[in-house]
Design a protein around this nucleic acid. Sequence first.
RNA 1: GGGGCCGUGGGGUAGCCUGGUAUAUCCUUUCGGCUUUGGGAGCCGGAGACCCGAGUUCAAAUCUCGGCGGCCCCA
Length: 475
Amino acid sequence: MSLPSKDNFSEWYHEIIQQAEIMDIRYPVKGLYVWYPFGFRLRNNVYKKLREIMDREHDEVYFPTLIPETELRKESEHIRGFENEVYWVTHGGNDPLDVKLALRPTSETAMYPMFALWIRSHADLPLKVYQIVNTFRYETKHTRPLIRLREITSFKEAHTAHKSFEEAEIQVKKAIEYYKEFYDFLAIPYMVIRRPDWDKFPGAAYTIAFDTIMPDGRTLQIGTVHHLADNFAKTFGILYEDVGGEHRYVHQTCYGISERCIAALIGIHGDDNGLVLPFEVSPIQAVIIPIPYKGKDEVVREASKKLANKLSDLGIKFVLDESEDRPGAKYYKWELKGVPIRFEIGPKEVESGEVVVSFRDEKRKFKAKIEEISSEVISRWASEMRERMRKKAIEMMKQKLVYPKDVDGLKELERNVAVISLCRNRECGEYVEEISKARLLGWLEETPWWVEVKEVDSCIVCGGKGSLAVLAKSY
RNA sequence: GGGGCCGUGGGGUAGCCUGGUAUAUCCUUUCGGCUUUGGGAGCCGGAGACCCGAGUUCAAAUCUCGGCGGCCCCA
């Protein structure tokens, strides 16, 4: 068994998802996939971090999967955005339902009628909750594991309510900081981009998205933050009484991250040999491979056990691979799974009280004294590895970026991501989309250091006031 | 929305056009055994498949129709 080269990203991705046992794609419904135990452990490790961040100032809640049609249709812009991809429950047993029930495509319309009951006065604000749930969208395009799904299994959605537009805007900024922390933790580089007004979340005042770049040059939206203003509050009657006794509409935000974060983790860090995972989220953090020569297998086994005990004491999730495979086969096997640290112990190391160490992201091997391996040493290794992964990912993304200076430069984008100066007018935006056959993701909220633009010119279409915009083929 | 292609063991495939071999090909996987172990070892033996339904026919993996499932291209 071997993987296709990552140069053929689409095929590589398809294969690694299965071979590394992230998901079983054989479930007999389009767009629905099964989490394998290994994949689910990875998911849980990643979401543990996301929960930890959310728990700092949000309460976790759970709202129902089913939303009555009457609620879903209240916000007209919102339903227009989702109408074509809603799954409907139309029957209870054999009886048609009086009011159809939608499988939530997202939970605004499930939550906000309840928010109207929960929020009475300014003392109830701010309200900040989140849930991690599945959502359903009837995708008609190509579905792809973790990327385009009919059942999103792991949608972390946070919803907040505030006294004013300005307070909600502060929350938007906090949410962006939280998401940055999350993706920094995963060593995934991102661009924070304000979506065009005509492409924002249905019902929002504005939308800010996190986009990353996959190795094939297509961008992947890996998080969104929406300022909802009082749009939904007006629809669902979410009012509070302020200190003066006046009733006012709340201003809301919502922001979400789905299992696309796992897709980015796999796609960006992986290589021709398989997954490359940060130490903190890897389901298996280390593997010990004994090299048992004839006559020496007992001492090698003993030394391996000793190291295993030590790793146990340090609280590391590891595997001692004493199977019958040859060492080389074991290297490939655990590399496929992205195990960050590999220890090899053979007769030579038994003699010297050492162990051969190598890290998943580099070819190098070196020897270390077993005695000297400690929590501090391991966490230093882990953070050095994360830094290398981050650097490598940024290098990859820099290579995908192009900086056309005029409209002609947009015609041959190929698989690149274009950073251009563009005004905020819809005509100019749609014009560059048409010329480039790519999507205008929007305007950079802040310029990452690895985007090599010193100063902003005027709009490359109309010559008006420009800001840095990003154009790309996207997933 | 429009067009095209495909469905054979757990995975990848040959066979299909031109229906018929007595046991459906090869690789991988998996189980048992021997031997081995510093980057995917070898040998021996075993397991495992024609998507579903209808039709044509003496005979269907192969032809026709329908269903289900998947893939690709264009807008």
